[in-house]
């Protein structure tokens, strides 16, 4: 019933979706690791990245890759700005205060978009070549699919190299593990947090562009569901740990695609419910996520 080609197709779709979840989850997990902040506005930066991409794609003749890189850069700086204005004044506040603030920031961004560009979805159309289908051994994928996976892997590899080897990257991992000890080492936490917001928001913008391209549409609330699912991915992988976010992202992408692809069509409607059921299941077995620190380690 499921031919090898069909299975291969599902795998390609899973990698595709998983790449985007992973990109989004990285920013969430970096910020949570440092500040214990669940940043609901993260999905909205993704959305802004997609809109900015649309603007550049439709109103300019710049090379396609620039319509992606410019939003990444701009949204990276916007992430820094959001942190400065909304989150830094709350340093040391209870987690619930920060959570509510991030919900507020999210609403403000979404409402501002509704007021200025309206809630009307807009088409995000790329040059025809990008959506051209290639068929290899009966399995088909578009140039965009290849771009999505290639770019995501390249970005994540670059981030990994950065976090593993640079002075700031090592400081970031240390601060995520034990903030107080990191401060005693002379690490300026505000600087590390700024870098985390910049990198995380940049990756979110990339994901937003890819997401909009895949579904050929943008709208002000488009960031909500990917943001939420990426958060689930981060928790599954072990929140605060970057490889965990990547692992969780791919796991969730595959699980979702396989759920829809291999179960009778009647189940498809439960796709999102399934995601959360999977989360609960994994947390029952590994309360701190797959790669997460044990509770004692966290103290």
């Amino acid at each position: 019933m499921f031919t090898p080609t069909y299975v291969a197709q599902q795998i390609i779709n899973g990698v595709n979706l998983g790449s985007m979840y992973a990109l989004i989850a990285i920013g969430l997990t970096m910020v949570y690791g440092l500040l214990r902040l669940i940043n609901f506005a993260h999905g909205d930066l993704l959305m802004l990245g997609a809109y900015l991409g649309l603007l550049l794609v439709s109103a300019t003749f710049m090379p396609l890759i620039l319509t992606l890189f410019i939003p990444m850069l701009v949204i990276g700086f916007l992430g820094i700005l959001v942190e400065r204005l909304a989150y830094r004044p709350l340093r040391g506040a209870p987690e619930v205060t920060m959570l509510i603030t991030s919900l507020a920031v999210s609403s403000i961004i979404e409402n501002s978009m509704v007021m200025t560009v309206t809630a009307q979805p807009r088409a995000f159309n790329l040059p025809a070549g990008v959506n051209r289908l290639h068929t290899v051994a009966g399995v088909s994928f578009s140039t965009l699919d290849a771009l999505t996976v290639g770019l995501s892997v390249a970005l994540m590899a670059a981030l990994t190299l950065y976090v593993r080897n640079t002075r700031t990257g090592i400081a970031m991992r240390a601060a995520a593990e034990n903030l107080r000890a990191a401060r005693l080492m002379g690490i300026d936490i505000n600087r590390v947090v700024m870098v985390a917001f910049f990198l995380g928001s940049m990756l979110a913008a990339a994901a937003g562009w890819l997401w909009a391209a895949k579904y050929s549409t943008v709208e002000p609330f488009m960031g909500f569901l990917p943001g939420l699912k990426a958060f689930v991915a981060a928790v599954i992988g072990g929140i605060g740990v970057i490889p965990g976010a990547v692992l969780g992202g791919y796991l969730l992408g595959f699980a979702e695609i396989f759920f829809v692809g291999f179960l009778p069509p009647a189940f498809s409607g439960y796709r999102d419910a399934f995601v959360f059921a999977l989360l609960l299941l994994i947390l029952l077995i590994r309360p701190n996520g797959i790669l997460g620190a044990s509770t004692e380690e966290r103290a």
Binding site: R167, I170, A171, R173, A174, E177, N178, R180, A181, A182, L184, M185, G186, I187, V241, A293, E297
Partner: peptide
């Protein structure tokens, strides 16, 4: 720290997910 103070805290607080050498390098951050 910039004024020359180093603090070896109670309970060690080494960074368990970092290598020994990375921990040492952080001391010289």
């Amino acid at each position: 720290v910039a004024r020359g103070v180093a603090h070896c805290p109670e309970g060690r607080l080494v960074f368990g997910r970092l290598t020994v050498q990375e921990n040492l390098r952080l001391g010289a951050y």
